[in-house]
Computed example of a mutant assay.
Amino acid sequence: MSATAETGTGTFGHPALFYRGAAEYLAGTVPFVRDGLAAGEPVAVAVPGANLELIERELGADAARVRLLDMTVAGRNPGRIIPGVLRAFADSHPGKPARIIGEPIWAARSAVEYPACAQHEALINLAFSGRDATILCPYDADALAPDVLADAEATHPVLIDGTGQRSSPAFDPTGLIERYNQPLPVPSGAFELDGTTDLAAARALAHVRAAACGLAEDRLGDVEMVVTELLSNSVEHGSGSGTVRFWGGDGEFVCEVHDRGRLTDPLAGRHPASPYQPRGRGLLLVNHLADLVRLHTGEGGTTFRAYFRA
């Protein structure tokens, strides 16, 4: 079972690997890595820690030539993966066809996280359109639910499993992005600042509320920064003001900002930013600092929701 066959060169390839057990996992990933190394291509592997150990052990000395990342850390927030993992690696090797294994969905992902994971997989196709790269995405066919595997068929044009390789007749990343673009219900008891432009007040309240929810002191600054950036984005690019909400407990804090504008760029917050870029990095920073970011946009406005965990 080869993950390299028919993925193409000089264009973007995005196959899904449906594996059952460690033997199929290694058969689908390690040849993909070694073929890239043999061709002189830069190779990165970003998968959950246990699978990372499997690949590293199987590669032996070749592992030193591969960028290895634990996706449970680097991709804790799915919104961070495109700019902080995939594009960060590909862009650091200009003029070369990057080869990456990215496994952003695993069985322990929560129901709250999953929609952002599925949308991330769909957005990869937009972020790398026309780029010279191949990103192989493994899916544990034994541990993941059937609807997760069905979504993978919608986000990947090529499917690989123990029987071989085939094109996906269900490939429709744009449709999947919209299908998971659902309103985000607000729990009862959420504290709300309605239609505000007061960044200082929102920041101060975020600090107090996050501390009351049990967040560590070193995370409170992250919360303040995220609330500031989200509200600033609503003031500058949304409807001129934003409704800020806070809630949480048991070591988790959630903040969201809603405005009446509509987001038109599906990759907002996922575009890499140059260190010399004076503006346009606010949503990128939000994705970097939060443990999870959920988004809904439509005729009724746009909501960004950021989660922080102890």
Score class of each variant (00 low, 15 high):
M1K: 09
E6V: 13
T9Y: 00
G13Q: 14
A16V: 15
A23R: 12
L26S: 01
G28W: 03
G28T: 08
T29A: 15
V33R: 02
E41F: 05
P42I: 04
V43A: 06
P48A: 07
A50G: 03
L52T: 12
A61L: 09
D62A: 15
D70A: 11
M71H: 01
A74H: 08
N77R: 08
P78F: 02
I81L: 13
G84A: 06
V85S: 04
D91G: 07
D91I: 02
H93M: 05
G95Y: 09
G102T: 04
A108C: 02
A118N: 11
I124G: 12
L136Y: 08
D140F: 07
A141S: 11
A143S: 05
A145Q: 11
A145N: 05
P146N: 15
V148F: 13
H156F: 08
L159M: 10
D161V: 03
G162I: 14
A170Q: 10
A170K: 15
P173L: 08
P173E: 06
P173S: 03
T174C: 10
P183Q: 02
S188R: 10
S188H: 03
L193T: 05
L199A: 13
A204R: 14
V208W: 02
R209V: 14
A210Q: 12
A212N: 15
A212D: 12
G221P: 14
V223S: 14
V227Q: 04
S234V: 01
S234K: 03
H237W: 07
G251R: 12
E252L: 01
C255S: 04
C255W: 05
V257Y: 00
H258G: 03
H258W: 08
H258F: 11
L263V: 13
T264H: 11
D265H: 03
P275D: 13
Y276L: 07
L285G: 05
H288C: 09
H288E: 06
A290W: 12
D291R: 11
V293C: 10
R294Y: 09
G298R: 02
G301A: 09
T302E: 07
